[in-house]
Nucleic acid binder design. Structure first.
Lengths: 151, 151
DNA sequence: TATTGTTATACTCTATAACTATA
DNA sequence: TATAGTTATAGAGTATAACAATA
């Protein structure tokens, strides 16, 4: 046989799949579509889940530190923090000795939702990566992390 | 030693790195920043490079087919095609027997730029993935493709 | 009736500059 | 002077609906 078996409804982008960046973008699009659905059921977006998780794991950090950690602009963090605070998932607490800073603290409710959301995201990844073995998932994780460290 | 060696300026997101989607998003951000720079030097965006490449590899396809291949909306393709046609990289040719459709054809200039851009993108990936062995790059490629096939 | 390309539009995401209050 | 948080705004990217021409 001299025609490649069609493994995709449209295969016109087959030569682009040779680029890792293209394949990664496509893979991420699939992941994000499902993640948006899963987190949406909990009233969260991907970025608010990330922010809440970091605040739960690192209580007391400032908005600037959180912006650094998530690689988003301080300015764009404001409404996100407003949103989480408005739902009583976190609080802006004063920092002793520097009245410019806010210490971001999770509420009990925020901690509970973070736990629930983490479980949901884990289930989401288990579902989407079911076609890969545990070893393959770990290898993918390792390669992505190595890339991030060395690129 | 009981503190993990700091391999990142801010490591507050370390627990999120356990999620493949998060690590992939971070990796892709690094790739895309460099890709934007590399293609920008040729007057292309990532999406216009993809479109031009598909048109060169599949001359005569319609806009709808291209939109399907690249997973973008037909409506958003219009200005992109205008842009490529305005630079004389491609042409909208009539299709015999169906006057609704346009056959997208690369010009000689478009073919040359596509070749040059492909080489630039390959060099860009070689540079950014220099920290991974050839085997690791192939394995990453394989795992991403397998994910896309099975997810 | 359905499809192709098109236009208009709205919505999200992100980036930048400038302001305020503090230091 | 510099920093933390904030506000306003502009640009890119993307999604949806509706239209004209054609099938």
């Amino acid at each position: 046989m001299n025609h490649t078996s069609a493994d995709s409804p449209s295969d016109l982008d087959r030569h682009l799949s040779g680029f890792l960046g293209y394949e990664m973008k496509r893979a991420l699009a699939v992941l994000q579509a499902d993640l948006t659905r899963v987190l949406g059921a909990l009233g969260l977006r991907a970025v608010s889940f990330s922010a809440l998780s970091v605040i739960v794991q690192t209580p007391g950090l400032t908005q600037s530190a959180l912006a650094d950690a998530l690689q988003i602009e301080r300015s764009n963090l404001v409404t996100l923090i407003d949103e989480l605070a408005g739902r009583n998932l976190i609080m802006r607490a004063p920092v002793a000795g520097d009245r410019r800073r806010h210490a971001l603290m999770p509420t009990a409710e925020g901690q509970n939702l973070a736990r629930e959301a983490s479980a949901a995201v884990e289930a989401h990844e288990n579902r989407l990566f079911a076609g890969l073995t545990a070893e393959e998932r770990h290898e993918l994780q390792r390669l992505l992390t190595k890339f991030r460290r060395t690129a």
